[in-house]
Design a protein around this nucleic acid. Sequence first.
DNA 1: ATGAAATCCGAGTATTTGCTCGGATTATTG
DNA 2: CAATAATCCGAGCAAATACTCGGATTTCAT
Lengths: 199, 199
Amino acid sequence: MAEISPRKQPRQARARATCEAVKQAAARILVTGGPPALNTNAIAETAGVSVGTLYQYYPSKQAILAELVRDMRAGMLADIERGRAQAKGHDLRTAVRLMVGASLHHHRRDALGAEAMERAEAELPMDAETDALKRRIIALVAELLAGYGIADPELAARDLSAMTRGMAQAAVAAGETDFDALTERIARGAIGYLETGCN
Amino acid sequence: MAEISPRKQPRQARARATCEAVKQAAARILVTGGPPALNTNAIAETAGVSVGTLYQYYPSKQAILAELVRDMRAGMLADIERGRAQAKGHDLRTAVRLMVGASLHHHRRDALGAEAMERAEAELPMDAETDALKRRIIALVAELLAGYGIADPELAARDLSAMTRGMAQAAVAAGETDFDALTERIARGAIGYLETGCN
DNA sequence: ATGAAATCCGAGTATTTGCTCGGATTATTG
DNA sequence: CAATAATCCGAGCAAATACTCGGATTTCAT
């Protein structure tokens, strides 16, 4: 059974830099070579540290990936929270546009990295903290939708998240870079989903 | 460099049964254990044949997966073709409903299998034949959409496919089994996407 | 029935991969 | 400047994995 929680806390600045280097190295390898290319020796070499050092802070390979995914989810949650604050007070249509835009924020920063991470998440035993983050994201969207009188807001939140994720994934895979246009297209689908339900 | 095209054609009935057993074993392992659990020894054992036998028909592990994915894509293409034949003559909304239903046909047969396969496809070097199948699927949808005067039908086809895939994936992951309800929800999004574009 | 072709077997090989351990190096403290 | 704690190193081990090979067994054609 592979441990997932970190093994030891870095106390000195040097050690903190090491941890960060390891994470970034793992992320880079994941983007360039996909999950099968992600092995501990490669991570250590890319990070410029030795395997032994790596294992002082991460108890297993999976733990590195888990922390990477957790970071991404935390970032997403922050993006969504900002989006909701921005959307407050607007009508449903513009609120949806703003929320979709917020969901795509991490794609704007690093589209390939975001995609690689989301795919990697699938083949990882879900750790409790990341699961909680995902639930909070959905709950946040559901709460917003409920404010507009949407029926079954939880289901709608899940559907809209999935819709966004799916379309973004395909767009990135196709090499699209105009995220404003993509946001607009996703918002059209989302608004259609929400408004067609009421009549 | 791993070969992907099959190594030898089975000539006798026994050999054909072996090939089929290998494929089904691989599919089952993929569903129950995910990509990391898919190794040649396990495949051979599950299929009830020896590794040596396996390697007489498949030049590499990837070749097995590739053929599995190819089969699934071929099935999807057939489903979509039937869907289009059924949709012909109806108005846009019912046509969309029928097409979404057709796209989900393989999910109805084996939801977990379909999902496992689609995820596995991502970490596989795209082989030419499968790529051609995917293109044909998109082209078919695009052609249908063009008949209804949709602008940029290729892009719309890609977006709608991605939308369907994303929502279906999330629904299956959440344990949903009512595919009629799911079809209806996806269709709402799709119709919204298509109709909001025109005004 | 008999030779040839097809199929099957599974122990074994070469490689990869996750991970450990004992000791060297660097930082911190009193 | 010690002495102690923190950090780092990397050779190497144990296990897993993709794949091969030589020969046994079964099927087919005549």
